[in-house]
Design a protein around this nucleic acid. Structure first.
Length: 560
RNA sequence: UCGGGGGUCGUCCAAUUGGUAGGACACCAGCCUUUGGAGCUGAGAACCAGGGUUCGAGUCCCUGCCCCCGAGCCA
């Protein structure tokens, strides 16, 4: 345990400690547990989101820091909601995050037989009984926050009768909902979870792994502690809403007298401008509001990955938000900070014109072209240089030109000179308009002496623009994303931001981008970080997703 | 109403367990710049309230206040 001291801080020098780490260290010190073994127990009924990444990183982090083990275990106790598709997606996501579970991949449903035996044991101890009440009746007799519940009329069945009925439930003799197995605790308990909770319900439904073998399925409260116990979990970490369930978790384990892990709860992650609700995701996908669970606007891990987030940036984020018990709302700007920080160091710079405006350089010889040396990454000299074609006709960004410049605008306008990145200074002579008066082309002249972007006479320009040679440009689609919701604290009913996706269909990309691979990440100079879409991008028609924009003090100033 | 939790800069998390309240993000100012990017420097900014104990309280004790979770045969 001497290594706990220097493993306190993980990547990026995050917060020094948290209450869970301290509790685990204490348990090791007092000998409550000889080592550390954690687990991440998703139900395979949806895709994982960044809130799960936080949980995974806590579970895995605690195991790693104390030299322990980490299991991935599917809590697949409800066949009505669970599917293999989700199992596969979750495994991929957990691996992507980098929580190593080795061969410790488990399924709660594999323990059904053992759970059944333990239930029989509880019946024999007269701690559980078969109840004939309907779901509605159970609900009605449970009481409420201020009133105690009433005992089930079947609460005092004999052990023999209970054993018989329970085995017949298992055998499939009764229809769905006809009976349940309930723990005999206390219908007047102030904690509603302790009022004779249901342990098993009858479900004539095929399980994605167990097939038609089972007609009864265990409830979460009954199953979860048993799963933890079977796997020898020491610290069963979960979110705050299970605090009320801990007494029940403990009760089952104590009644059985089996190995007893310790449950510790922490606050789940909330982020502004988004929702962390599986139900909402399913709804958005079903209604076609988003493309799928991996839509880049969703905070699912699959969505973030497709958007261009790296697992490292998500882990850095998780380390920084820490672990605590109080409710919080993390600013999504923090997540964006970590992906910018990483991509600033690693993403090659390229030029792409999103909303093209043609520029014709009158004094550049017709038919001539040349290759310009461009830095791949000013943050990283080892990234080298590449050659980009330059010619008489170019595209620049529409928003980089203003016929009558507003105050503080120092890009291109008639009579003004700017630098084309890595290339030449150009001066605008004239804006050509169509019949309707829209600007369709700029007539400019360049200064051959400024090749490379410097003027020998030392004159300065206030602005540098990105550009793409018209003759060589690759056309592609660029998808710009904004927050999924305009409401900083959306409810599940909040409308989706109508501008959450803007697809620009005819962007002009520098020719090298033709060979970009799915998932490959770039900085589009002056605009942001983009990655090749992993689903819709083709060689002929590349598609890029904007991961996050560059910080933009101009637009900030402009809004004032 | 009952039970379980929780209140520290705008946001998130710390404070060696009673000894100068700190970091990150965000924001603001300045510098620098062949990305209005990046980078650098600096500033502002908090202990829910009121009592008490103590030389000394974010930390211990009282009394309030506010917030979250819980009444699925979901997890």
């Amino acid at each position: 345990m001497s290594n706990t001291e220097n493993t306190k801080t993980s990547i990026e020098g995050a917060a020094a400690t948290n209450f869970i780490r301290e509790a685990v260290a204490e348990d090791l010190k007092t000998g409550r547990f000889p080592g550390v073994h954690t687990r991440f127990p998703p139900e395979p009924n949806a895709y994982l989101h960044i809130g799960h990444a936080k949980a995974i990183w806590i579970d895995y982090g605690i195991a790693r820091e104390f030299g322990g083990l980490f299991n991935l275990r599917f809590d697949d106790t409800n066949p009505a909601k669970e599917e293999q598709e989700f199992v596969d997606a979750i495994i991929e996501d957990v691996k992507w995050i980098g929580a190593e579970f080795g061969d410790r991949l488990f399924f709660g449903s594999d323990y059904f037989e053992q759970m059944y035996q333990w239930a029989v044991e509880l019946i024999k101890k007269n701690k559980a009984y078969v109840c004939d009440l309907s779901a509605e009746e159970v609900s009605k007799t449970r009481g409420n926050l201020s009133e105690p519940g009433q005992n089930s009329p079947n609460r005092d069945r004999t052990v023999e009768e209970n054993l018989d009925l329970f085995s017949r439930m298992k055998a499939g003799e009764f229809p769905d909902g006809a009976k349940t197995l309930r723990a005999r605790i206390d219908m007047a308990h102030p904690n509603l979870n302790m009022r004779d909770p249901v342990m098993y319900r009858i479900l004539h439904q095929e399980h994605h792994r167990q097939g038609a073998k089972w007609k009864i399925y265990p409830m979460y409260d009954w199953a979860h502690g048993l799963e933890d116990s079977i796997e020898g979990i020491t610290h069963s970490l979960c979110s705050l809403e299970y605090e009320d369930h801990r007494p029940l978790y403990d009760w089952f384990l104590d009644q059985l007298g089996i190995y007893h892990p310790r449950q510790i709860e922490f606050a789940r992650l909330n982020m502004n401008y988004t929702v962390m609700s599986k139900r909402k995701f399913i709804e958005l996908v079903r209604d076609g509001v988003v493309e799928g669970f991996d839509d880049p606007r969703l905070p699912t891990l699959a969505g973030l990955r497709r958007r261009g987030y790296t697992s490292a940036s998500i882990k850095n984020f998780c380390d920084r938000i820490g672990v605590a018990k109080r409710d919080s709302l993390v600013d999504i700007a923090l997540l964006e900070h970590y992906i910018r920080e990483e991509l600033n160091k690693t993403a090659p710079r390229v030029m792409a014109v999103l909303r093209p405006l043609k520029v014709v350089i009158g004094n550049y010889p017709a038919g001539q072209s040349e290759m310009i040396d461009c830095d791949n990454n000013p943050e990283d000299a080892s990234a080298g240089k590449r050659q980009v074609p330059f010619g008489r006709e170019l595209y620049i960004e529409q928003e980089d030109f203003m016929e009558t410049p507003s105050k503080g605008f120092f890009r291109l306008s008639p009579g003004k000179e700017v630098r084309l990145k890595h290339a030449y200074y150009i001066k605008c002579l004239e804006a050509v308009k169509d019949d309707k008066g829209s600007i369709i082309e700029l007539r400019c002249e360049y200064d051959p002496a400024t090749k490379g972007g410097d003027s020998p006479d030392g004159r300065k320009v206030k602005s540098t623009l990105h550009w793409v040679s018209a003759a060589d440009a690759v056309s592609g689609e660029v998808r710009l994303y904004e927050q999924l919701f305009t409401d900083p604290t959306p409810s599940t009913e909040s409308p989706v931001n109508p501008n959450s996706l803007t697809a620009l269909k005819d962007c002009k990309l520098e020719p090298g981008l033709r060979n970009a691979k799915p998932g490959e990440k770039f900085q589009f100079l002056r605009q942001g970080y983009f990655c090749v879409d992993s689903k819709n991008s083709t060689k002929d028609k590349p598609v890029f997703n904007r991961t996050v924009g560059l910080k933009d003090s101009w637009s900030k100033e402009h809004k004032k």
